[in-house]
Simulated scan of single mutants.
Amino acid sequence: MKTKQEEKYQALLQASMKVITEKGFEKASVSEIVKEAGVAHGTFYLYFTSKNSIVPAIAEYIFDKQLEELKSETADTNNIWEQLNDLINVTFDITQRYKELIIFCYSGLAFFHSFEKWEDIYLPYYQWLEDKLNQAKERKEIDASIRTASVVRMIIGVTEHTAENLLLSKERVDDQNVSQFKEDLFKFIKKSLV
């Protein structure tokens, strides 16, 4: 059960995402956010030092959702290839679902916060995949000489880059095109691990 503080934080976060998606960051005001959240104006500042500080909170929310969905999708398998296929699918799904907010977070973190915050946000995701790769090494599914700590960043990086280049561009893409990119990406990652 969530505490009142957690409920207020989540209400502010959800309201921020809604208002920012509808109006854009520059036009979104703290007043509109607290009104949408149904909390007093001063409550915002108990959780965020400024409107700018909502940026990493939104990014963290998206990554938490991604990792939560990934853990759920991979709960019933110990096969690294199924897990990596799920990683690709979840990454593409999350990128599509949170398209506007991801674009906002990239620009927001670039301007208002250091990129070091990204590492903090990604850390649980990196650790999850590193654990999966180490287990795959033990099962002899992947090359035992691979340095998993660095490979994890490469896999996540190429997966996100592919999803974002395809889904965040202004060009329309169809489902068949997306499926082909996912398939090619999976083959590329698999070849790098065996």
Rank of each mutant, 00 (worst) to 15 (best):
Y61E: 10
I33D: 10
N79G: 09
T91M: 01
E82H: 09
S29Y: 01
K4T: 09
E6M: 08
E32Q: 11
S72W: 06
I62A: 07
E68R: 07
E22S: 15
A15W: 08
G42Y: 00
A37H: 01
E26M: 10
K18L: 07
A15I: 04
S31I: 09
I54T: 05
F44A: 12
S29G: 06
L46S: 12
G24C: 07
A37P: 08
A59M: 11
Y9I: 03
G42T: 01
N78K: 08
A57L: 04
V19L: 10
K65G: 05
S16C: 02
Y45N: 00
I33M: 08
Y9L: 15
K71H: 11
Q10D: 14
I20H: 14
N78M: 13
T77Y: 13
E60Y: 05
I62V: 04
E7D: 13
A40Q: 00
E60P: 02
L84G: 07
V90M: 01
K51M: 10
Y45W: 12
K71W: 02
A75P: 00
N85A: 09
I94T: 03
A59Q: 12
K65M: 11
T77M: 14
Y61N: 12
N52Q: 08
E6T: 11
L12M: 13
E32M: 15
S29C: 00
D93W: 06
E73G: 03
D76V: 05
L13S: 04
V30P: 02
N52M: 02
N78Y: 14
N52T: 01
